[in-house]
Design a protein around this nucleic acid. Structure first.
Lengths: 199, 199
DNA sequence: TAATCCCTCTAACACTTGTTAGAGAGGTAT
DNA sequence: ATACCTCTCTAACAAGTGTTAGAGGGATTA
């Protein structure tokens, strides 16, 4: 990890805990172990650090969405749509909700969305709009196997989506992201899945 | 509204938008229209403003919880448990989620919970633990009329609770609390209720 | 060897931060 | 009239804020 990456890493940890404005350039430099002028060699100003983090996050979720489409189109998963849902779930956990970078970015967006419109747009997209759309696609494909009547599907997805969203806020965007919290989250997801789709 | 109340009001608006640390004493005083030394006549220090807001919120929800217990024990509502649920819902909206003071406090807790343990405890209690308990009580009483089998009830409440929680985050703790957002929230609550409990 | 590039440093700038000492103005009680 | 209480002000403090000019050192190229 070079200096620029170190700065971004430390800044994200601090921003996501105390908020962008509350963290000083000196705080970041002290933790990284550099002088302030060195930071200004790598970044135009303080805001530039935040912007770079947002850009990194955007490209991260872009590639994530592309990858989801590929799983969606994978002929192997078409045989067993139940398995496809599980794949999507565990992929979303590992490379999004549990991913240290993404998780901290979600926290940062949660804090900043109240006074930063760009952050709010991203927050709504990545926590509500995109997940719902992805989930709807998976369920639609699952429905093609005749698992549900067409009338039910939108309601089933809405229920599923709100359950997952609530669990995300309760366990993953609250306190430190410990193994204990991840397990508690996973346990409740698993219980919901068996209760709803395995009986 | 006296000076002390004005200070608390302005501080809450600013804290809940930008976070406690990011707001300066001078910002607050400028908006209230007083000098900094006047603020220090009413409050020991900056932290004291935050603490006073938290105390006010705590006593607010205490009286709210007592009032909910009274509705619960009201013999009039026992006749029609469906009505009781609707009463509870609209009471919770008007004097909690839609209430300007409570709504801003929830936003503030959302921001501060990441680095303030007292805030995190309050956040978990007021957004997850307490609402679930209240809802469970209402549904249990409703169940006594034989509306559901006992086995279902916990799952029904869990589903209901996560749906309401998700809608709260999506519409009420995101952007400014406009009439439009309130209506969108209410509409989705209503749709869920008819879909689940009126067929 | 000399010139160039990349990265880090020292040192300082103008401004903002939380906080306080002390004075004054208006009202109420003695 | 005198004393006191409640509230607000002016003015300043030490420390922390984001940011910049300019020097130096090590590696790479000419």
């Amino acid at each position: 990890m070079n200096t620029r990456e170190k700065i971004m890493d430390v800044a994200l940890h601090m921003f996501s805990e105390r908020g962008y404005e509350a963290v000083s350039v000196r705080d970041i430099c002290g933790e990284v172990g550099i002088k302030e002028s060195t930071l200004y060699y790598h970044f135009k100003n303080k805001k530039d650090i935040l912007d770079s983090l947002v850009e990194k996050f955007k490209s991260h979720i872009d590639s994530l969405l592309r990858h989801v489409d590929e799983i969606d189109a994978d002929p192997d998963s078409k045989n067993d749509e139940d398995k496809s849902l599980k794949m999507m779930d565990s992929y979303m956990m590992d490379s999004y909700l549990f991913d240290p970078f993404c998780n901290l970015m979600l926290r940062l967006m949660m804090i900043e969305q109240f006074h930063n419109e760009e952050m709010r747009t991203l927050y709504e997209k990545t926590l509500f709009t995109d997940p719902y759309e992805i989930q709807l696609n998976v369920f639609k494909k699952w429905a093609e196997t005749g698992a549900f009547s067409d009338m039910d599907i939108e309601m089933i997805v809405k229920d599923y989506h709100s359950y997952m969203t609530m669990l995300t806020f309760k366990y993953l965007l609250n306190g430190e992201l410990t193994e204990k919290r991840k397990k508690a989250y996973y346990k409740e997801v698993h219980e919901y899945m068996t209760r709803r789709f395995s009986a």
